[in-house]
Design a protein around this nucleic acid. Structure first.
Length: 1009
RNA sequence: AGUCUCGUAGCUCAGCUGGUUAGAGCACUACACUGAUAAUGUAGGGGUCGGCGGUUCAAGUCCGCCCGAGACUACCA
């Protein structure tokens, strides 16, 4: 006779893990679970590819648990859920780790090591931890196809990416332009924000700051500024070396400004200066004193201790817009439209927190500056000059030196830090300029100032903000489309989509695609030397055709490279329409484009599998999940590419999970040694307990304070209880030989308590399915836990124990077995998405013994469907009464010192309405045996035992009584027995408060005993 | 600096559109059970709901400010 497996004397989750894992592998359960479902009923899931360059951490277990849960759930709901794995193989972290291993820096590439050697090393390194990843994937029970993953460095993948870029190019969404980017002159490279955010990059530095006096041109002044003599505008800078590149002053249109008469503290010349009203006291602190008398001002003498200042008039920033001024330092003029330079423009970013409320604007060295200058009408030109080659260039070169032809500052580094050791001059350019301005009556104030400033993580020297040439995607052109499409996406949690992602889209900038690196997807754009002609290659075939054109036209002998990476692709020369040679733009593309391209590139679309996308078979995704940190990363790039190329969303539902912190809420880091090793955790506690803990403890999008004791609690409390329940069942079922071979008893032939637990079970099935459908796994697990612990184990099994061991193999006993079996079997399915191994172990133990279903694994079974006919809410309610009355009685016993062992004759139960009696009668026996009492006597108010009290129903009465609510509640509380009886009978009771009469009904008062 | 999230018992978390005495689990204490026993059950103590102010008859819940934690974006004269 078939037996229920009872090998395990006590719960051993790691043991179960091992058994089930090997069962899955030998029997190909994952594959079967996917393939048994129809192709035309798919649930599309995208795997955000991890980089195998780092080791898997506990947070990866978290993220992948979320992914796994919904994929497994949908599979059991009958969907075909393909789960193609993938590897992210490009990007800076990989380059950095290679450089670390080889002990080289970027400068060495091309000298100490060739580009192809370097790239070969990257290719090799990127998969260094693949085995660890495959291992954790298996051990944590994450089902994803590891055999056919997409790999972003493959030619097919790159080709799809090129095709996408080609689409953007055709739509005129790709362009080359310059932006201000962090740049390290010492390292000769632009820095990404990722690099800038390395720890220790922001340091406190003391800089020489200048409040400069910009002399306005009289004829451009508005009327109210006339007649005061020379008027200067004050502007503050922490980077005086940018002053020669100044081309505008920016004011806040709504900010209040004042005109002040005073004297320059260095030259003592009388001056009139304009600055923000809010900053007057800050700028005129110390040496200055305010005066209301013009005479006092005029009588000022150099030997006076304090310099007086007098406020002449005030105005709004808007009134200053358009004023022109003399160039402060005349080293060079903008090569284009110099007549539009040196004027006051409006800018909304201006604040009055620091400085003067007027921003010195040098469009070549500040991102805000460049933006506001562009927005001005007419556009303010940046200070660019022509170099020997006839190219427009800023006054500072790529080494961080002023250009040679700039008089005394020519050839000098803009910061002393850039000089080789020991060669820095005593006076930095900043100081030199400060002195010069002081002497020329152009400096209002020179001060040292302490602030944080970013430094290059490699050279440890300050970063420069510098205009660099880059390729951009004109995402701003598609902004509205992206916003509109985002509104159709179901974000979990909603605020990540509405706020974080929504705000990001509202403030969208063009996407800077360029990266000047070596290991990544090359930009497929070729240009002639003079940049007048260009082409964008969208496939390998196209490249081959263009190469042969170039070969015949230019007499070359090129072949299509086997590897599309640098350096091979760099040597390809194409020919333009007019017959000129074209070279590839040397940049690589942002790796984020790689991952955003994954819906298409994973299938080598459109060169292969056209239908997958065109017919919507694998696009868009029904579901994706990743950390919140991907909001501007993967979530955005997926969305941007889908919006721009396909005018579609890329995903319909997205779960963004939070961080995994240590148990004290501190971020895990190697430095602090608070990192949890996922392998150890799973080996010790089992994958299921780990997964269940992570999901049930906090919502996936809240940060999780990861505490091993929490896993232990889940193991004991939840899995332990379920295991014990099963052990209990199998112990007696094996003795009695129950194999569910008898016909299933209809519910109405079973005991009240059987009907009850089956009713609850069906309610649970509905709730849990709804929660999973709604991407709420935490609620689902919490509901299952409550059922298992509170109802199944603590009530059903405990009260029914006797039925399992007492007497013959009777119908009642069989009914009990059937009931418990059904609960356990259903639970195995309900829990399968979260605890796939334990669930399968439980399912197989049950089903292998009874053969009731023909599935070899729970993951091939269908998710349970709630049977509404089995749900009896009245029954659920009266059992709830029974539980509560029992608890109440036990509590009274406790208070009175009457042990449960001591039988009591009867309990008195006050009854408020007659339906209550029939409800209690149905569960009477349960209560009596539970509390060891012989009988229950119902008492009603007619017998005078009950002292009734009425209580206000605040919710309904609040509207009626308004501010008299408090008094009313008090009056109701004090109602006597007669009035209460009266109220119950007539359904009305009149109270009077402050002369106002109110008529109350039963609805407004609630009986309370 | 900005945007967003969070702050409820020693710990981890529930508290729906504002409504009566703010709830679970763990831990702790006491007890019961001894045919689920390296298991199970019951009872109990424990909270000025981060702080201040406002709206309201009524605020853990709504609004403002502040404090603290975290994430992202930016680094700005």
């Amino acid at each position: 006779m078939a037996r229920y497996n009872d090998d395990l004397k006590q719960l051993n989750l790691p043991e179960i893990d091992k058994k089930i894992r090997s069962f899955w592998e030998t029997n190909d359960i994952f594959k079967k679970s996917v393939e048994q479902r129809p192709v035309d009923n798919s649930f599309v899931f995208y795997e955000g590819p991890p980089s195998a360059n780092g080791k898997p951490g506990i947070h990866h277990v978290m993220g992948r648990t979320v992914k796994d849960i919904f994929c497994r759930f949908q599979t059991m709901k009958g969907k075909r859920v393909e789960r193609k794995g993938g590897w992210d193989t490009h990007g800076l972290p990989i380059e950095l780790s290679v450089e670390k291993v080889l002990g080289i820096t970027k400068e060495d590439i091309g000298t100490k090591i060739t580009v192809d050697e370097y790239n070969a090393k990257c290719r090799e390194t990127v998969m260094q931890y693949k085995d660890l990843w495959d291992d954790i994937t298996r051990k944590m029970g994450y089902w994803v196809d590891l055999d056919n993953p997409y790999i972003t460095f493959n030619n097919e993948y790159i080709e799809s990416v090129w095709w996408l870029l080609g689409q953007l190019y055709k739509k005129n969404l790709l362009y080359k332009g310059y932006t201000i980017q962090p740049y390290s002159p010492a390292a000769g490279t632009g820095l990404s924000s990722h690099e800038l955010n390395q720890p220790g990059c922001y340091k406190d530095v003391t800089d020489t700051t200048i409040v400069a006096q910009f002399l306005t041109k009289r004829e451009s002044l508005p009327d109210f500024l006339h007649g005061h003599g020379d008027v200067y505008i004050l502007a503050w800078t922490t980077t005086p070396w940018t002053l020669p590149s100044n081309t505008a002053l920016t004011v806040g249109p709504k900010i209040d400004y004042v005109l002040i008469k005073t004297y320059n503290q260095y030259t003592f010349k009388p001056i009139n200066v304009i600055l923000a009203k809010a900053l007057v006291e800050k700028q005129f602190a110390g040496k200055f004193e305010k005066t209301d008398s013009v005479d006092h001002l005029l009588s000022f003498n150099q030997s006076d201790k304090k310099i007086p200042y007098y406020i002449v008039t005030e105005c709004k920033g808007q009134d200053l817009v358009g004023i022109r001024y003399e160039q402060l330092l005349k080293y060079a003029m903008p090569y284009q439209n110099p007549e539009d330079a040196f004027r006051v423009i409006p800018g909304h970013f201006v604040t009055t927190e620091d400085g003067t409320g007027v921003v010195h604007t040098a469009p070549t060295f500040g991102a805000d500056d460049a933006k506001v200058a562009k927005e001005a009408n007419p556009e303010v030109p940046p200070l660019l000059v022509m170099d020997e080659m006839g190219n427009p260039v800023p006054l500072v070169d790529l080494q961080g030196k002023f250009r040679a032809n700039l008089e005394e500052i020519g050839g000098k580094y803009v910061k002393n830090e850039y000089y080789p050791d020991g060669e820095a001059p005593e006076r930095s350019v900043d100081v030199e300029l400060a002195i010069k301005l002081k002497e020329e009556n152009k400096a209002f104030k020179v001060e040292k100032y302490l602030h944080t400033y970013p430094h290059c993580w490699r050279t440890d020297k300050p970063v420069l903000y510098y205009p660099l040439d880059s390729w951009f995607i004109r995402s701003t052109a598609m902004k509205d489309k992206m916003i509109e499409l985002n509104k159709t996406i179901n974000w979990k949690p909603a605020h990540t989509g509405e706020k974080r992602f929504g705000n990001w889209l509202e403030n969208l900038n063009d996407w800077n695609l360029s990266r000047s690196r070596y290991w990544g997807i090359p930009l497929p754009i070729w240009r002639t030397e003079d940049a007048t002609e260009e082409c964008c290659i969208a496939s390998i075939d196209e490249l081959t055709i263009e190469i042969s054109k170039a070969n015949s036209s230019l007499g070359l002998n090129q072949v299509t490279p086997e590897d599309l990476h640098r350096p091979y692709i760099d040597s390809v020369i194409l020919v333009s329409k007019s017959g000129k040679p074209m070279k590839r733009e040397l940049d690589l593309i942002d790796v984020w484009f790689d991952s955003g391209a994954m819906p298409y590139a994973q299938w080598h679309y459109p060169m292969q599998n056209r239908d997958f996308i065109d017919k919507g078979i694998t696009f868009p995704a029904d579901f994706i999940a990743e950390g919140v940190d991907q909001t501007r990363g993967w979530f955005f790039t997926l969305h941007a590419i889908a919006s721009m190329v396909f005018e579609s969303v890329a995903f319909k539902n997205v779960v963004s999970n939070g961080l995994v912190l240590d148990k004290d809420g501190v971020k895990m880091s190697k430095r602090l040694g608070n990192v949890i090793d996922p392998f150890e955790t799973i080996a010790e506690y089992g994958a299921d307990a780990t997964r269940w803990y992570m999901i049930s403890n906090a919502q996936p999008w809240d940060n999780l304070k990861f505490d091993l004791e929490g896993i232990d609690e889940v193991r004991r409390k939840f899995f332990g209880t379920l295991f014990n329940t099963y052990s209990f069942f199998s112990l007696y079922a094996n003795i009695d030989g129950f194999c569910y071979s008898e016909k299933r008893f209809p519910l109405d032939q079973r005991q009240e308590i059987d009907k009850w637990i089956i009713s609850l079970l069906n309610s649970l099935v509905k709730e849990v399915s709804d929660e999973f459908s709604d991407y709420e796994p935490t609620n689902a697990t919490r509901k299952i836990m409550a059922f298992v612990d509170e109802h199944l184990s603590n009530w059903y099994v405990r009260l029914c124990r006797r039925r399992f061991w007492k007497g013959e193999y009777s119908d009642d006993k069989i009914a009990a077995y059937q009931t418990l079996y059904e609960c356990l079997s259903t639970l195995s399915k309900l829990t399968a998405p979260v605890a796939p191994m334990f669930a399968d172990w439980l399912y197989k133990n049950l089903n292998d013994a009874t053969g009731l279903e023909n599935h070899e694994s729970v993951h091939l079974a269908d998710y349970p469907i709630s049977d509404p006919a089995a749900i009896d809410k009245d029954l659920e309610q009266r059992m709830d009464y029974a539980q509560r009355i029992s608890s109440l009685v036990l509590s009274i016993r406790k208070k009175e010192g009457l042990r449960v062992r001591q039988p009591l004759k009867k309990i008195l139960l006050p009854i408020l309405d007659p339906s209550f009696i029939s409800q209690i009668d149905a569960v009477k026996e349960l209560i009596l045996s539970e509390v060891n009492v012989k009988e229950i006597e119902y008492i009603t108010d007619t017998e005078g035992f009950i002292n009734k009290k009425a209580k206000a129903n605040f919710k309904t009465l609040g509207k009626l009584l308004g501010k008299n609510m408090k008094a009313g509640a008090q009056m109701i509380q004090e109602m006597d027995q007669k009035s209460i009886t009266e109220l119950e009978k007539t359904d009305q009771y009149i109270i009077e408060i402050d002369g106002d009469r109110y008529m109350l009904s039963n609805e407004g008062c609630r009986d309370k005993l």
